[in-house]
Lab assay of single mutants.
Amino acid sequence: MPVRRGHVAPQNTFLDTIIRKFEGQSRKFIIANARVENCAVIYCNDGFCELCGYSRAEVMQRPCTCDFLHGPRTQRRAAAQIAQALLGAEERKVEIAFYRKDGSCFLCLVDVVPVKNEDGAVIMFILNFEVVMEKDMVGSPAHDTNHRGPPTSWLAPGRAKTFRLKLPALLALTARESSVRSGGAGGAGAPGAVVVDVDLTPAAPSSESLALDEVTAMDNHVAGLGPAEERRALVGPGSPPRSAPGQLPSPRAHSLNPDASGSSCSLARTRSRESCASVRRASSADDIEAMRAGVLPPPPRHASTGAMHPLRSGLLNSTSDSDLVRYRTISKIPQITLNFVDLKGDPFLASPTSDREIIAPKIKERTHNVTEKVTQVLSLGADVLPEYKLQAPRIHRWTILHYSPFKAVWDWLILLLVIYTAVFTPYSAAFLLKETEEGPPATECGYACQPLAVVDLIVDIMFIVDILINFRTTYVNANEEVVSHPGRIAVHYFKGWFLIDMVAAIPFDLLI
């Protein structure tokens, strides 16, 4: 008679799926529990143990900040960024110097990925580790590398530091407007667009060049630039800015003055950032001319202004700041037409079709709590990747769950009947059967004279019903998954307890 339990259901295979997918890609990662103190490590794979030199037993239950890997060259700011990422709910990448158990130093890129439950609360953290440099290539500990984003994938490793954006290309926007319009339909740009040429040739750093990471940081200074100062900065030398009595002219307006920039070969870094931020506020060169004239017309309804409409929906549905990093990277690809469009465009503009998908598509409701890094690593669709929660398995109709209350009560009843059979069957065979043979035949009273025979008949009927119930009862397979398919249940029961239950259900007393 089957006594099969499996009270692990309803099970959740999400954690096993993450481990299996990460292991298949030869990654070095740990999984931490966000619900406990210090976000203790609950799993670390073999790749991480080989990377740091510690065994799994030495890593388990330690804080996922990996303070046991810190050393003299470990930056405090990087460690603080990892700790801050564990307090938030967004994906974050941090470069930090770690030390192995043998004392060797290596520069590592740590990717902190939160995993949320159905309520939107962070319950786990996945920390992925990628070695960037070994100890002989690690720089000085005073050099802070965590304020910069990861290198873009479309640049060669040897040319990542030679990417320079020439400031004269930004200063000569109005001069290039006529050349853009003359391109017409034969050019790649839309009317009114501004073409910015980027020099990728390796050259020595000069005062006129600005690194790509500095251009990325310009967006942080746009908020500090007032509207009046932006307007004066875009007017140009024809209309000098008016300053109040006793007030000095704005240095932001002076930063885009061609006369002032041409007199000296070098520009201050602050002026460069502010000038680029001011130019980015204009949607095209037409807006710059309109600002000089004193009238700013409404933005025209053409394809170039609607190019950012799908980007707005993608940004609203993005799951991490990696989408913004990807957008900034692609927006700086050289030799393309940049349409400086305000994100607050007309909502009635139709979304044009684009061959290049900048932001990841909208994630469906079932995966809105899973970050983009987890979705990318697992390579699963929205119909396959579940949320991290207890999910009731989908069972067929008329199927009994093996952990249901009805099955528990039924098993206790069958257990009592088995005990009765084990006690009274030998007793009936030894004593009652002998008395029946010696006594007179009682054929007239039937079952009324033999109450134990009636009980034995009921017990046999219950055993037959138990066999039928076992054909529709779920079970737990070797992978700790609840199986509810009727065919698989029948095959599993035939290979197991079916023969024993059938022999126990045969009414031998009635056959004798």
Rank of each mutant, 00 (worst) to 15 (best):
P2N: 06
P2W: 06
A9M: 14
Q11I: 09
T13E: 09
T13F: 08
F14C: 13
L15D: 01
L15R: 01
I18V: 11
K21F: 04
Q25A: 11
S26C: 07
R27E: 04
I31P: 01
I31D: 01
A34R: 14
V36L: 15
N38Q: 10
N38Y: 06
I42F: 01
N45R: 01
D46V: 05
G47H: 09
F48H: 01
E50A: 12
G53T: 01
S55G: 09
S55R: 06
R56M: 03
M60L: 14
C64L: 02
H70W: 15
H70S: 05
G71I: 01
R76P: 15
A80H: 08
I82N: 04
I82Y: 05
A83T: 14
A83M: 13
Q84L: 06
A85N: 01
G88D: 13
E91A: 10
E95S: 09
I96W: 01
I96T: 04
F98W: 03
F98P: 01
Y99F: 01
R100K: 15
K101R: 13
C105F: 09
L107F: 14
V113W: 15
P114V: 01
V115A: 05
V115D: 01
N117R: 13
D119F: 09
I123K: 10
F125S: 05
F125E: 01
I126G: 07
I126M: 08
N128G: 15
V131A: 15
V131L: 12
V131D: 15
V132Y: 06
M133Y: 07
M133T: 14
E134A: 08
M137H: 15
G139P: 09
A142M: 09
H143I: 14
D144H: 15
R148K: 12
S153P: 13
P157S: 06
A160G: 12
L167E: 15
L167D: 10
P168W: 01
L171G: 14
A175V: 01
V180C: 11
V180H: 15
R181I: 13
S182A: 06
A185D: 14
A185S: 12
G187T: 11
G189S: 05
A190E: 01
D197V: 01
V198I: 12
V198E: 03
P202G: 06
P202W: 01
P205E: 15
L210H: 05
A211Q: 06
L212G: 07
L212F: 06
D213N: 01
E214W: 04
T216W: 05
A217K: 14
A223N: 13
L225E: 14
L225R: 15
E230I: 09
S239A: 08
S243P: 06
A244V: 12
L248I: 15
S250T: 07
R252Q: 08
L256Q: 06
N257T: 14
A260Q: 11
S263A: 12
A268W: 12
A268V: 14
A268L: 11
T270Q: 07
S272T: 09
S275R: 11
A277V: 12
S278E: 11
R280C: 08
R281K: 15
R281C: 10
A285D: 14
D287T: 09
E289F: 04
E289L: 07
M291Q: 11
A293N: 15
P297V: 10
P298K: 09
R301L: 12
T305S: 07
G306W: 03
L315Q: 07
L315D: 15
N317R: 02
S318Y: 10
T319D: 14
D321G: 12
D321P: 10
S322Y: 08
D323H: 14
L324C: 13
Y327W: 09
Y327F: 12
Y327K: 07
T329Q: 15
T329D: 11
S331N: 09
S331F: 04
K332S: 13
P334G: 08
Q335L: 04
L338F: 09
L338R: 14
V341L: 06
D342N: 07
K344Q: 14
G345F: 04
D346L: 08
L349F: 15
E357N: 15
I358K: 06
P361C: 07
P361H: 09
K362C: 12
I363M: 12
E365R: 07
R366Y: 08
R366D: 04
T367G: 15
T367C: 03
H368W: 07
H368E: 08
V370S: 01
V370F: 15
T371F: 14
V374A: 06
T375W: 03
A382P: 14
L385V: 07
L385F: 14
P386H: 03
